[in-house]
Design a protein around this nucleic acid. Structure first.
Length: 319
DNA sequence: GGGCCCGCAGGG
DNA sequence: CCCTGCGGGCCC
C-alpha cells in the first residue's frame, strides 16, 4: 500500500521525466531540421556534422511559473530511500570491500586508477592541495578533463571544478559556475544528458540546544525562492545560456552517478526554470548537456557502456 | 544504522 | 564578524 508521500513522489518523478523527454524531443527535432537544411535530399557525400560549436540562442522565453516542473513532497524523511539497491551507504566510501571491483572493470574506468593509491588514513580536514585555478569562471577548468574523479568534495574544490564543500550550487549574479548532483532531492530525474535539479534553501539548520545550527544540512522545512542567491544564479544561467560545470556524487540515485566519490561530467546548459507550489515552494531547473563532449557512462545500472549517453533512455525508471 | 561534531567556501 | 550550504568523520 503506497503511502501518500510515495504517490506524490512518483507523480513528481513522472512529471519531471516528461519534461525532460519533451526537451529531448524538441532538441532532436531542431537537430534534424538543421541537418536537413544543410544536406539536400539524396546527397550523401556531404560531410557529416562539422565541428559542433555551441552557439547561444538569442533569446529564449522563460516561464518562471512553469507548471510542468514537479513539486517536491512537503515531508521528506531523509533516511527514507526510494531505491535502497541504488543507494550507497553514506560513510562507506573507501571502506567498500575489494570485491566490489569485481562488479565491473569498466565502471571504475581510468577514474579509479587515481583512486588506487588513495590514502584513506590521511588526516581529517587537512587541505590536500592548493587551488591553482579560479572556480568562479564559466566553462572548463584547464587540466581537468571530463570524467575526472575525486574521492571527496574537498578534492573537487581544490581542482576548482566546484568550490563549495557542502553547497550544491556555486554562482553569482553573473550566473552559476557549477552544480553538484548529490541526491538530496528524491524526485529529481537524471537521464544523463538531461536532468532536473532542485534549488537550495528552505532547510532550517538544526543542532543541539548547546550548539544550535551546527548541522550543515537539514530536511526541507520552508519555501524556496529565486531570491536565494544560488537559485537566482541558476535562473540567470537559464537566461544567459552560459555553460555550467556539473559533478555527480555517489549519493545520487542514478545510473550515471559514480559508485564512490564524485566525478566531473562536463558542461550543461540550464534549459528551463520554474517555481512550483506544492507543499513547500521549490525552485526547479532542467539541465541539458552541451553536445560534443566525451559521452557519459552508466555505472550502477544496466550494462556499462551500452549507451553512449546521446540516446533517450526511455526505459530508465531507476530514479 | 543514527547523533553529533567539526572545517571550509562563499556571501553579507 | 556573522550566517548558510544536497560533507565527512567519529562515536555510540
Amino acid at each position: 500500500m503506497p503511502t501518500d508521500y510515495e504517490l506524490r513522489r512518483q507523480e513528481n518523478i513522472a512529471r519531471n521525466m516528461k519534461l525532460l523527454e519533451g526537451l529531448m524531443g524538441k532538441h532532436k527535432q531542431e537537430e534534424e531540421s538543421r541537418i536537413k537544411q544543410t544536406k539536400p535530399v539524396g546527397h550523401n557525400n556531404v560531410p557529416k556534422k562539422k565541428k559542433r560549436i555551441y552557439t547561444p540562442k538569442k533569446h529564449v522565453e522563460l516561464s518562471s511559473e512553469d507548471e510542468i516542473m514537479g513539486s517536491r513532497p512537503a515531508k521528506r524523511a531523509r533516511s527514507e530511500s526510494p531505491q535502497p539497491g541504488l543507494r550507497r551507504s553514506l560513510r562507506q566510501a573507501g571502506k567498500i570491500p575489494p570485491n566490489h571491483q569485481a562488479q565491473s572493470q569498466t565502471q571504475l574506468l581510468s577514474l579509479v586508477t587515481a583512486k588506487a593509491g588513495v590514502d584513506h588514513d590521511r588526516e581529517p580536514n587537512r587541505r590536500s592541495g592548493k587551488r591553482v585555478h579560479n572556480p568562479k569562471t564559466f566553462g572548463h577548468i584547464p587540466g581537468i578533463p571530463v570524467g575526472t574523479w575525486w574521492e571527496s568534495r574537498e578534492d573537487c574544490s581544490n581542482d576548482a571544478i566546484h568550490a563549495p564543500w557542502v553547497a550544491g550550487i556555486s554562482g553569482s549574479l553573473e550566473g552559476a559556475y557549477s552544480v553538484a548532483l548529490s541526491g538530496g532531492y528524491e524526485d529529481d530525474v537524471d537521464m544523463g544528458d538531461y536532468f532536473t535539479f532542485t534549488g537550495s534553501g528552505g532547510r532550517a539548520l538544526k543542532g543541539t540546544k548547546a550548539n544550535p545550527k551546527n548541522l550543515r544540512t537539514a530536511p526541507q522545512s520552508s519555501d524556496q525562492s529565486f531570491e536565494n542567491p544560488f537559485n537566482k544564479a541558476l535562473k540567470i544561467s537559464s537566461e544567459t545560456r552560459k555553460p555550467v560545470r556539473v559533478i555527480r556524487g555517489y549519493k545520487l540515485p542514478s545510473p550515471y552517478a559514480p559508485l564512490e566519490g564524485y566525478k566531473y561530467d562536463g558542461l550543461y546548459i540550464v534549459d528551463k526554470n520554474g517555481l512550483n507550489d506544492g507543499g513547500f515552494l521549490v525552485c526547479k531547473f532542467a539541465f541539458r548537456r552541451i553536445p560534443g563532449q566525451p559521452p557519459l557512462r552508466r555505472t550502477s545500472a544496466g550494462k556499462p557502456d551500452d549507451n553512449n549517453g546521446s540516446d533517450v533512455d526511455s526505459d530508465m525508471t531507476g530514479v
